[in-house]
Design a protein around this nucleic acid. Sequence first.
DNA 1: TTCATATTTGGCAAAATAGCCAAACGATAT
DNA 2: ATATCGTTTGGCTATTTTGCCAAATATGAA
Lengths: 116, 116
Amino acid sequence: MNEMEARPNRHFIAEQAKIFKALGHPSRLLMVQALRDGEKCVCDLQALIGADMSTVSRHLAVLREAGVVRSEKRGTNIYYALALSCLATFLQCTGTLIAERIRQKSALLGNDQDAT
Amino acid sequence: MNEMEARPNRHFIAEQAKIFKALGHPSRLLMVQALRDGEKCVCDLQALIGADMSTVSRHLAVLREAGVVRSEKRGTNIYYALALSCLATFLQCTGTLIAERIRQKSALLGNDQDAT
DNA sequence: TTCATATTTGGCAAAATAGCCAAACGATAT
DNA sequence: ATATCGTTTGGCTATTTTGCCAAATATGAA
């Protein structure tokens, strides 16, 4: 059994790519980053993103269908929460790496901060 | 210093999203998976993907510009290698998760394997 | 019931992406 | 010099994604 981790089949790879694709949009990634602090309702996330509510809802649908977040209706609102525990570690890692890259690039350009 | 990990700025988030976006395509993800075993030339990767050489080259450019892989010309060929060490762990984690999901879904449908 | 509030969905236009062919490029060999 | 090999780039079309508005839906309040 589970040959799929050694030599991933088409369905498996597609499913995994879907996760990455879902995270590969600034607005969606920002929402996911925010969800590390705990669940939020769509309205919270809209405030964070600043786009139309319908746009935010569509982004959330992408994340949900990829299995990155899960949603739960409670009271008047729908709350979204992270459903991919290992993501936090990876975000941390890429974050550090990118910070490093940005720092190097700034150094090359002669500025002392790029954190604008 | 490094406020960006707590409250990521636009540039930072865009850069991070670029990594995910790069990984968010089946062909690119497949190549990255293959690169876990060590560097490969474009021709190897083309054989893996089966698309036009130009297509493979463009996919590799996306990965390279996102900083997921790095390339090095050696002899006649150009070799691509992983440049994002922490990726392997995350792939492992999502892989396990997806395998789990696929298994559950298959169970629901009554089939005993979906690993086709 | 009607009204308001929170979220999703339909539909469309603009923008981005994917993939192929052909052409260009750079290095090595002849 | 020409030829060849491995790779990238130009240019094009087809497909997908994005984001807004408006409309639908669901749920709680009055």
